[in-house]
């Protein structure tokens, strides 16, 4: 899988804000339970979160949803600032976070324009019985370290290893490979795959929706592209029949 470049295409026009991805992620990745106190302290951890923005006043009011997760930027601002290489870009196009290396300077979190890095302010706690649910493939993070979306790298590892063992090919969009959020999304707003595979769904979407040589002929945009982070997550613009066209990067 070393020649892959994983990425996601998120169709904002399909996202209903149902939060299925949020729980799917928490369940897969042993994200600690966000208690009421943790919300009040503004330390809740949601590797993928759904943001809601208001527009207008009653009765002409719109609420718009957008799922935000680690953009796995090619030029990630978080990577150069980590003093110990706890976060870096790997050869699969992913921005990875190595928990055991992390010392918790929180420099990366400050420098992330997408606010998708989360810090473990407390030791995560589960009641005894709930620990049976924890995914053994994912490290339970201790306090004092950063964590963030990994594109469910544990699934990539397990699936490619088992495919190697059994000598089979992995199809594009295979469920055992896809991140938990993508599998859960009821409206298929999230599509995930390999940008290096020219036949993958994400490549086709990128080809169709992104601008090429300056001609913009689709809905594709990258979030806050003006910062030069070159994310590996492509968003497809929300369609509002009453809206005037706006451009993501001014």
């Amino acid at each position: 899988m070393a020649d892959a470049k994983w990425g996601m295409v998120i169709d904002v026009d399909k996202c209903t804000g149902c939060q299925a991805c949020v729980v799917a992620c928490q369940s897969e990745n042993n994200v600690p339970i966000n208690t009421e106190d943790i919300f009040n302290q503004r330390r809740a951890i949601e590797w993928i979160r759904v943001e809601r923005y208001w527009e207008g006043e009653f009765p002409d009011v719109k609420a718009r949803f957008i799922p935000v997760l680690c953009q796995h930027c090619d030029d990630a601002p978080c990577e150069p600032v980590c003093p110990v290489f706890a976060t870096y870009h790997n050869n699969e196009g992913m921005n990875v976070q190595i928990y055991n290396r992390c010392i918790g300077t929180r420099f990366c979190a400050n420098n992330c324009p997408y606010h998708v890095r989360y810090f473990n302010f407390w030791e995560p706690e589960w009641p005894d019985t709930l620990t049976h649910q924890l995914n053994p493939d994912v490290t339970v993070r201790s306090r004092g370290i950063m964590e963030k979306c990994t594109f469910c790298v544990q699934r990539i590892r397990r699936t490619s290893r088992e495919a190697d063992r059994d000598g089979r090919e992995i199809e594009d969009g295979a469920r055992e490979l896809s991140p938990a959020c993508v599998n859960s999304c009821p409206t298929s707003a999230l599509v995930w795959g390999d940008f290096n595979n020219k036949n993958s769904k994400v490549s086709n979407l990128a080809e169709k929706e992104m601008s090429h040589n300056g001609s913009h002929h689709g809905r594709g945009y990258k979030m806050m592209e003006n910062l030069g982070t070159s994310p590996n997550v492509i968003y497809l613009k929300k369609i509002d029949k009453h809206a005037k066209e706006t451009v993501a990067h001014e």
């Binding site: 870096y88 790997n90 050869n91 992913m94 790298v153």
Partner: peptide, 10 residues
């Protein structure tokens, strides 16, 4: 063998 950190740490 791969020496990418995510080979073993994730």
């Amino acid at each position: 063998a791969p020496t990418d950190c995510t080979t073993c740490h994730y």
